[in-house]
Design a binder for these strands. Structure first.
Lengths: 248, 248
DNA sequence: CGACGTGTTGAAGGAGCTCAATCTAAGTGG
DNA sequence: CCACTTAGATTGAGCTCCTTCAACACGTCG
């Protein structure tokens, strides 16, 4: 997936530049971070709940997700990550991981010593601010998801999620806003939305039947963005993208 | 409420010291931050969704909460804040607020120019790290709430919340772990847990009837911490308190 | 081919919602 | 001090959205 001629940490520079205008030396400093690369297949753990990791982890290619397992065995997926995301910046500072991070697909990851991340953050305020900004955007998405799960019904939750996928995959250069490949099973979609797999299926079928979407397996085509966004109560503000892609 | 002889920013120093050992000069620098104090009565807005605030806001006394209103009019409460919390550190960096912050009770707040907060964070890495840490713990609580709302049933959600209140109010010196005053109405509890006020009421009554709690109006006594924590699937790890108060 | 993962569909039950009434405590004004 | 109001807690009854359990379809891969 990733351009093999490219520096493994390049996606990180791109991501941070999205938030903050980095000077050449800032970018160089990021690229000079020490790291070790690793390739993991789907479902492998990147961080385990309760771990005390000594490394932060950059997702170089593929998809990953964060999750929590609750007492009755239920699982809640808390966030999704695409290439360029630091999937556990929080673990650079917090001692013990309060949740797990898992590979959703085959992934390439770069492990960076947490000390190096912290030193860089404070040696180069712009980089530090960009990283901080990144964790804040992360929090913003968390909040939107909480509202989604807590106060919206099933069709709205899923429509919202489909819109978010479109925007985020496109922003990461992994598809079109209105036409992309969902990177997860319906069971995983259920764990994102706080529903059951069965109900996710029925609800997605209903969206199809209403002419809002068109799915064949994992391939999603959004037939009517305006109506889907409306149904999903979706406004992209919470993603804090600078380039407000004005759709419709 | 707040000790009037005390510096208004003292609660912030206390809070940050909880995360990181601050040098005397660090503490002094925090106390030297410019600010303007303000007193607000319950329900007043501290930050409005969509605002582009020029100030960060420290909660000096009282309670506040963050919320989001969704398309159908429903409200989701995203977080609770007690004295010493920076209720919108995220707005120091993010341009537009993606949610509102409201006073839950009468509050005293100190507005600090965002520029001053950022400058301090990078001039004094220890302070910056403590602030970053703070936003990360905030995120950790967000995640636990998401799991709570997404994957736990009503009795579990409320038992969990009652446990969290006990720990957090105690940590802030505002009550005992097993005996405190809930700072919110049942309607607000509903907006925290993603339930309806009626169902919150019935569920709380059931907890009482089972001998787990004992409520008279807002006063809560936890009769059996072990059983309530068990029922609520509660483990305090996600609060990332250093002083792991080992109960039972 | 058989096994398995994933998607799809049916039928029945239940957790939680809606609507609405009642009750209580705490103001508030006269 | 009492009538009046109001916010919040409590309770009842009926309904619905979502769950649970189960079966079946389809494609992939050993």
């Amino acid at each position: 997936m990733s351009n093999s001629s490219e520096h493994p940490l390049a996606p990180l520079v791109r991501k941070l530049s999205q938030w903050m205008d980095l000077a050449e030396e800032d970018a160089d400093a990021v690229l000079s971070l020490p790291f070790t690369s690793k390739s993991l297949s789907a479902q492998n753990y990147i961080v385990r709940d309760g771990d005390t990791p000594e490394h932060s982890c950059l997702l170089v290619s593929g998809f990953a997700y964060r999750q929590k397992v609750v007492g009755n065995g239920g699982r809640q997926i808390l966030a999704l990550h695409v290439k360029g995301d630091m999937v556990d910046l929080q673990n650079s500072l917090l001692r013990t991981a309060d949740h797990s991070v898992q590979a959703l697909t085959k992934v390439e990851v770069a492990f960076i010593p947490r000390r190096a991340v912290l030193d860089l953050a404070f040696a180069r305020p712009k980089v530090g601010m960009a990283m901080w900004y990144d964790t804040l955007v992360d929090g913003s998405v968390h909040r939107e998801w909480t509202a989604n799960i807590g106060r919206r019904d099933a069709p709205t939750r899923l429509a919202h999620l489909l819109c978010e996928f479109g925007i985020r995959l496109h922003a990461a250069g992994l598809g079109e806003v209105c036409c992309y490949e969902i990177p997860m099973t319906q069971e995983q979609l259920a764990d994102v939305t706080g529903l059951t797999p069965v109900h996710v299926n029925r609800t997605l079928m209903a969206l199809d039947r209403q002419g809002l979407t068109d799915r064949t397996k994992r391939a999603v085509t959004i037939r009517d963005w305006k109506r889907l966004a409306d149904m999903g109560d979706f406004h992209s503000d919470y993603l804090h993208l600078h380039d407000d892609m004005m759709l419709d």
